[in-house]
Computed example of a mutant assay.
Amino acid sequence: MQVQRRTHYTNDSRCSCSMPSAVTVPKHVAARLVNLLSQPAHLSSAARAQMAASSWAGTGMTQQDFMHRDECLVVDQSDTIVGTSNKHDCHRFTPAQPRGLLHRAFSVFLFSPDGKKLLLQQRAASKVTFPSVWTNTCCSHPLAGQEPNEVDAPEKIADGSVPGVKAAALRKLAHELGIPPEQVPPASFTFLTRLHYCASDTHTYGPAAEWGEHEIDYILFVRPTQPVTLAPNPDEVDDVRYVDRGELAAMMDPKSGLRWSPWFRILAERFLDAWWQDLDATLDPESKHRDYGTIHHIL
Rank of each mutant, 00 (worst) to 15 (best):
C138Y: 00
L283S: 13
I179K: 14
D284S: 13
Q97A: 02
A105F: 01
F106P: 03
V184D: 14
R14G: 14
I219N: 03
E210D: 14
T229Q: 12
W276S: 07
G164H: 11
L195W: 02
L272W: 06
A168P: 07
H203L: 10
M19D: 14
K116M: 11
W263I: 01
T294V: 15
P40I: 00
H203P: 03
P285R: 11
Q50E: 03
E215Q: 11
L102T: 09
E176V: 15
V25L: 09
P98K: 06
T62D: 07
Q64P: 00
L110S: 14
S126E: 05
S132D: 13
F264M: 11
S200P: 09
R290V: 06
K87T: 01
A47T: 06
A53S: 09
A249R: 11
S18V: 08
A281E: 15
R32F: 00
A96H: 05
P227N: 10
H103Y: 05
R92G: 00
S261V: 01
R99M: 03
D238A: 15
P154H: 12
V165M: 05
I295S: 10
R48E: 08
L33S: 00
R241E: 06
K156Q: 15
A57W: 05
K288T: 12
S85I: 00
L258M: 13
S126L: 06
V108M: 07
V184P: 09
T135M: 09
A105K: 05
T202E: 15
P181V: 14
L283Y: 14
A209Q: 03
F191H: 15
D89Q: 08
A274G: 09
Y197C: 00
T10V: 09
Q4A: 12
T80I: 10
T204N: 09
D114S: 07
M67I: 00
H214C: 09
A49E: 13
V29R: 04
G293W: 05
D291N: 04
L220M: 14
A31M: 02
C72I: 03
L119P: 10
M252E: 02
Y292T: 04
D291K: 03
D273P: 03
H103A: 09
A153I: 07
W56I: 06
V108N: 02
C139Q: 06
T7K: 04
A124T: 08
I216W: 13
P234T: 12
S256L: 07
K117E: 11
H42F: 09
Y218F: 07
L101T: 01
L173G: 10
N11F: 13
Q183H: 13
D284Q: 11
S200D: 11
